[in-house]
Design a protein around this nucleic acid. Structure first.
Lengths: 342, 342
DNA sequence: ACCGGCCCTGAATGCGCTTTCAGTAAGCGC
DNA sequence: GCGCTTACTGAAAGCGCATTCAGGGCCGGT
């Protein structure tokens, strides 16, 4: 904003005919003679005075804006997590500054830097990290002075290298459980719709699924795994590719629900029925999937709770000497998108 | 954050053995002898220096965090709009501070106040306003000094009393067009799933729909309109109520897609088929509805564009003497959720 | 060799606020 | 009625930075 003149505390003090200090005290609810207080309050109201948060923060008053960084707020997954964060933040009278990185590590670091500059009391990082050690090191370097300066950091679904309080979905165990569930339904030939291999989430979910399959003597070939962006269109494209190559699997496991939705759309567009022709399973249990036709089989994650927990951790002092880790979710929910094979 | 000691510009200056002013200039890319500049930059790097954004803002440098206020970021409607806002903001190197009011007018005003205190260069208000003149007046009072101080404000889907640049969905015209489309399909008996009557959006959409019906000689009875929250569960509940009362309508018009999704779920749970037993239409065209089975007939709004336009308006000076108003969307998209009656 | 002018540096000022510190008026006991 | 405590108030310092202003080194011109 242009350096236009604003109504300042001094103006209010002058109007109320008191000193600057008294005006400040009156506005902040400290002990002041009622008569003076009223004069100050009236003057402030009259002049539409708004304290300058920057000056206030600079002068030592702690400020109440925490930062939340996610990959893409348009994604129902992050929207749900953010919803949880905001609930807890709201209960604690905190403002939430939400930033979307669009999966660009450079931008992510830039955001942390800005939040750091704003002296936000807490920063929440949501969404899987980038396996690239270069970025993880850069992020660590960015976070270290922040933590040393008294900042609080918590992460959701991301832990590899970052040594901070974490809320982790049971990615590996959940994927493994899904593998068992699908095997129980009689499936033996699988395809996987994976995300960018740079994401830790992909490694965990894919690994859990593959390892569990291997225990049953089933090996996932490279050609059974298609990588695509973690989006609806990514799922659509990956499924289409699979179809074009001649799908032999009876069941497709998408690493996220959003991708699964795209996969179902692709199948429908190819005249195939879910689950009669192909079974589809997802991961996350975003709210919408129970309302699809057929409702999607998935690994359930308590999305809002993920955010709530993280915010909670960022708000409470860690008295122990090690970082706190909370693991949530991972239960398979069988719905109608997966068929039982004879 | 606790008033812990941070690395300050003074520390950097001392380490680089230059004056504070020189350090500041070096860091901000002003003309400085290369040798000194390198010393300063090295010292800053070495100390992990982060400029204090508050001090910087206070000292006159304009800061780059715009505020976006919406009702509920978990709602796909707002998530999509916010996505558009963030795209434009990102292109302009702006940080976006997103706040969720959960439809609480008090909280909404509190957020504006905080944004004002932060001296955010722009504030975007998204989501319909509250018809209650008391709140609208309070909001106006809050915004006035902000605008006078050089702040920029733009609103999405909300205009009644706020005299600022606006991006408006074609609520009334869109609803009217939907009425005509449904009449063309042969429907004559309708029910409407409405939202809280306090929202301007409800008044516009309901009004447009009802008036158009009236032109065709059809009157919407009070009992044909059910009010419920603008949520999936709200739609589910309203539809259930309608069903319990004995539904006579052949077509249900939900004022938002999210409600329509809930309505479809309720119908399914009652063993009814969409569109064979009942046709369902929505409003907004949130991304997910094309992937539903059946895909939802709805009034399309270019959601991301709504946000982009608003951000754009907040970024560009209004050279004219009147507020700018952009109207977007409103086209009916017939999909498979509405049946053609003989 | 001397002076005017230019460019860069450093000291100092102020952004708006909170908070300490000292000071003054009022209230109390004796 | 005097001295002391108590309770507020006001002046002033300082948070970290950008920026203005004045001073000093160095160049070229004469």
């Amino acid at each position: 904003m242009q350096p236009r003149t604003h109504v300042t505390l001094e103006d209010v003090a002058k109007a109320a005919e008191v000193s600057l200090a008294t005006a400040s005290r009156a506005l902040n609810g400290m002990r002041v003679t009622p008569q003076l207080r009223d004069r100050v309050l009236a003057a402030a109201e009259q002049l539409a005075y708004t304290p300058n948060a920057h000056a206030r923060a600079l002068a030592g008053a702690s400020h109440r804006t925490v930062g939340v960084i996610c990959h893409d707020i348009s994604d129902p997954y992050f929207a749900a997590v953010a919803g949880g964060v905001m609930r807890v933040a709201g209960d604690n009278d905190l403002l939430v500054m939400l930033a979307s990185t669009f999966r660009d590590p450079e931008r992510e670091i830039a955001y942390v830097s800005m939040l750091r500059a704003e002296r936000a009391p807490a920063i929440l990082l949501t969404g899987s990290g980038f396996e690239d050690p270069r970025w993880e090191r850069a992020m660590e370097a960015e976070l270290k002075p922040y933590l040393e300066g008294g900042g609080r950091v918590a992460v959701v679904s991301r832990h590899r290298s970052l040594k901070v309080d974490s809320v982790l979905p049971e990615n590996r165990a959940g994927a493994a459980a899904m593998a068992r569930a699908l095997l129980d339904l009689g499936h033996r030939r699988f395809a996987v719709l994976a995300g960018p291999p740079a994401l830790t989430t992909v490694a965990d979910r894919l690994g859990g699924f593959r390892d569990e399959l291997k225990k049953a003597g089933i090996t996932l070939a490279t050609s059974d795994i298609v990588e695509a962006p973690f989006t609806r269109d990514g799922g659509y494209g990956a499924m289409t590719e699979l179809l074009d190559r001649g799908l032999t699997a009876t069941c497709v496991f998408a690493l996220t629900d959003v991708m699964a939705i795209g996969a179902c759309a692709a199948l429908r567009d190819h005249g195939l029925s879910v689950p009669d022709d192909v079974s589809v399973a997802g991961f996350d249990d975003i709210p919408i999937v129970r309302d699809l036709t057929p409702p999607l089989t998935t690994v359930a994650l308590p999305l809002p709770q993920l955010g709530e927990q993280a915010m909670q951790m960022a708000l409470t002092e860690n008295t122990g000497r090690r970082r706190r880790i909370v693991r949530l979710g991972g239960e398979v929910v069988i719905r109608a998108s997966t068929a039982k094979l004879v």
